[in-house]
Structure formats: structure tokens, C-alpha cells
């Protein structure tokens, strides 16, 4: 597999570590109401779609960026690659 790194261009998947669902970026607010339940869902419940899936890939043997890779689990086609940090910031996690 080849992942088109936003900064470094196409790179072999052998340089990466994959962690699965990019929903892991959305760590719940520990002080919000229902936080216990929200953390339970965050830690354990994942969608496993046949088709488009957003995944976290870590460029461990590269620039150490975490990436959000949008990929089809059926064809392995990669539709989009983003810096996970940018995704997290866009979700307001920088506050």
C-alpha cells in the first residue's frame, strides 16, 4: 500500500503503524455530564464499515506524523490523507 503523505508524498505503508478508527481523536470531555458512558463508548465501540473508513496511521519510520487516512476497506483505494493534528485542531482540540 502507498500512502500519499501530505508533506512527504507517496510512502510505502511499511513505514507506518496503523491504529484504526480515526474517531480516537474525539476523546470525550472528562468533565461533561455522562463522561463515564462517553469514555466507555470512546474506548470500546468502533464502526467497522465495508467501504469508506477514516483511519489513524502513524509515520513511525518517517516524520512521526499521525495521519488520518480515508480509505476504502473494500478496494483499498485511498481517497484522502490529512495531518491528524490539523484534523484535531479543526475539531477544536487545540483549546
Amino acid at each position: 500500500m502507498i500512502i500519499n503523505h501530505p508533506l512527504l508524498g507517496p510512502r510505502d505503508a511499511a513505514e507506518f503503524y496503523v491504529m484504526g478508527d480515526a474517531d480516537l481523536i474525539n476523546r470525550p470531555d472528562p468533565d461533561a455530564e455522562g463522561a463515564a458512558e462517553a469514555f466507555y463508548e470512546y474506548a470500546y465501540l468502533r464502526d467497522n464499515p465495508a467501504g469508506e473508513h477514516r483511519e489513524l496511521w502513524y509515520h513511525e519510520q518517517g516524520d512521526r506524523s499521525w495521519l488520518v487516512v480515508t480509505r476504502s476497506t473494500l478496494t483499498h483505494e485511498i481517497m484522502n490523507v490529512e495531518m491528524a493534528r490539523d484534523v484535531a485542531l479543526a475539531k477544536g482540540r487545540g483549546q
Binding site: L8, R11, A14, E15, E60, Q61, G62, D63
Partner: peptide, 10 residues
Amino acid sequence: AERTVMEHLG
């Protein structure tokens, strides 16, 4: 300059 993996080594 690039960083990559060769024979399992960074």
C-alpha cells in the same frame, strides 16, 4: 533528505 526504514531500522 528523507527518513525511511531499511532492514527494519529507521
